[in-house]
Design a protein around this nucleic acid. Structure first.
Lengths: 329, 329
DNA sequence: CTGAAAGCGCTAACAG
DNA sequence: CTGTTAGCGCTTTCAG
């Protein structure tokens, strides 16, 4: 039924070892032999069985991807970047949604190990200490993209949320904002923490104490942005830093529906730079995170680990750029 | 180093067959033996090697997913639906982006076969005849979700674009629209064709001949919607059917920037129902396609094929619902 | 440059 | 209920 390496060997009158060599591009084969084998391979339409190969070689050319939610545009852009690099290096990706649930994360992780993946990328979301520990103790290389474990022990690629947040805060202060608020989502605790600390620090240096009342933490979705506005409205904020574009758009619309003018009455800056930023009026001022690149660089880093290449720095910090559009003065 | 079934067998003083039985939940094991084996499994932290299992059993509990672009919100919602069902049935998914390129599609398909996946889901995009043929001749089950091959020979799940389009056309005509236009994207040729035919038919039945000038085919992205408006503007359309939400939002903004009032001067209906529909003002009137379900049902169908369950109908047509929001009268 | 042979870790008859 | 025995299809020494 299915044609195996043995069939090819017999037909080409060589041993399976030789067939294996030509399939794997081993140079130690006489060109004439190589041609003969290749001819048979094509004629028989032989397709190597990757599972058998994986068992024999202990390499599966497969990497696992743990992602909070592939239908979230933020993560799907990371995923695309990572996938492209994986393809470039001839790896396939097994992608699983964790919903940022530590239990699911561990389940996925174990499944991935059982499938003998050559490496794992952990995307976004909060990295719980238990999960981080499980990762530490496993022997397959793991890279974290778009988030970080609490003690930064894992290889990771990120932007510097703290600096970005601080920079934005200074700018908004300069433009007259005084009453700051923060809107975060459920996924990346690390990012949330860094943005908050950057803002708090920026305010403090300018003699303003930031009050925890002005923090809303929700689910990173559009409707959640509307909810956030409803909750924060009483404080009459004139500047909001928001962790997700989708939430930010919800904020914009809720504020407009409440009769506020953006950016005159309220300035909003978000932290994602997905394609959504240009899909509102006014257009969203946003920190341009190189999402595609964060995914891509993460995968590239992983390939280095998988091939035992030398690694200069396990912690990659990618540059960000703040794009001030219509929702800021 | 790694603990194998053999280690467990030795430690539990049984044969590897017995260990295999308890791991696979085979009832023919004395409870006492089962407990002993389980104890050893836990103590040794034994994790079955799925690759070896796959080789021996010829089942990998892995399905392949061919998707045009995971960073496109339309497809990522399909992907999420499919993934959830896959997880429910204990399958992992290998996801690869095809960019709707027939060459890449075939390459991915062959890689997937070589990985011995138990089934393949082909998502969205145009299904070229060559690819369809390749699929036909392979022995693994394949299901197509959100599109269809030209002669509808493959198992597929879809909505009835033709009817939806016709229904919208009638409604818009009733509300006074006379100058129709169509904006499509590069991905699903089948959907584009059906929407166009539904509209043409609806118009024809009302004595209006649809002119091909009023068709724009682009890339399904936001900026492309703006481009489409620029191109169609000269025809002064008062109704546009648009295949993608993202393009539709581009249309809305371009029209507004040109001083048009929506929906008074121009009505727009899109065909996706992604989360984007509510992220514009006015909100987008759109055909509610059950994207998540299209993916989910596709995967469910695939599991039936993989388990040789009985299949009533290889062609599933899911209900749609038209949601008239702010961009229509 | 090529072949023989020993596994990789597990499942699946087949006996008992 | 349990053990024995063949493989699954390929890679990888080791000889020659």
């Amino acid at each position: 039924m299915t044609v195996t390496i043995y069939d090819v060997a017999r037909e080409a009158k060589v041993s399976m070892a030789t067939v294996s060599r030509v399939v794997n591009g081993n140079p130690n084969v006489k060109p004439a032999t190589r041609d003969r084998v290749n001819e048979v391979i094509k004629r028989l339409n032989y397709r190597p069985n990757a599972v058998a190969r994986g068992l024999a070689s202990k390499k599966t050319t497969t990497v696992g991807v743990i992602i909070p939610d592939i239908s979230n545009i933020y993560y799907s852009e990371l995923a695309r970047g990572l996938e492209d690099i994986a393809t470039m290096y001839k790896y396939q990706t097994i992608i699983s949604n964790s919903d940022n649930d530590p239990f699911k994360e561990r389940e996925i992780f174990n499944n991935l190990l059982s499938k003998q993946v050559d490496g794992i990328i952990f995307l976004g979301g909060t990295l719980s200490n238990e999960t981080a520990e499980l990762i530490q103790t496993s022997s397959v290389p793991v890279v974290v993209s778009g988030t970080q474990d609490n003690d930064s022990a894992l290889p990771a690629v990120n932007i510097d949320y703290h600096s970005a947040s601080r920079e934005i805060t200074e700018k908004l202060l300069k433009d007259g904002a005084r009453q700051f608020a923060f809107v975060g989502g459920g996924y990346s605790e690390k990012a949330r923490h860094d943005v908050l600390s950057g803002m708090t620090e920026g305010l403090k240096d300018n003699g303003i104490t930031f009050n925890d009342d002005a923090v809303y933490v929700g689910s990173e979705q559009y409707l959640d942005g509307e909810k956030a506005f409803a909750q924060l409205q009483g404080l009459k904020p004139d500047a909001i830093l928001c962790i997700s574009d989708e939430q930010a758009i919800g904020l914009v619309h809720a504020a407009q529906d409440a009769g506020l003018n953006i950016p005159d009455d309220l300035q909003i800056v978000s932290f994602n730079n997905t394609r959504l930023v240009q899909m509102v009026r006014p257009k969203l001022s946003s920190v341009m995170q190189p999402l595609y690149d964060i995914g891509a660089v993460g995968m590239r880093l992983l390939t280095k680990f998988m091939n035992d290449e030398e690694i200069e720095d396990k912690q990659v910090v990618l540059p960000y750029h703040i794009d001030y559009r219509g929702t800021t003065k």
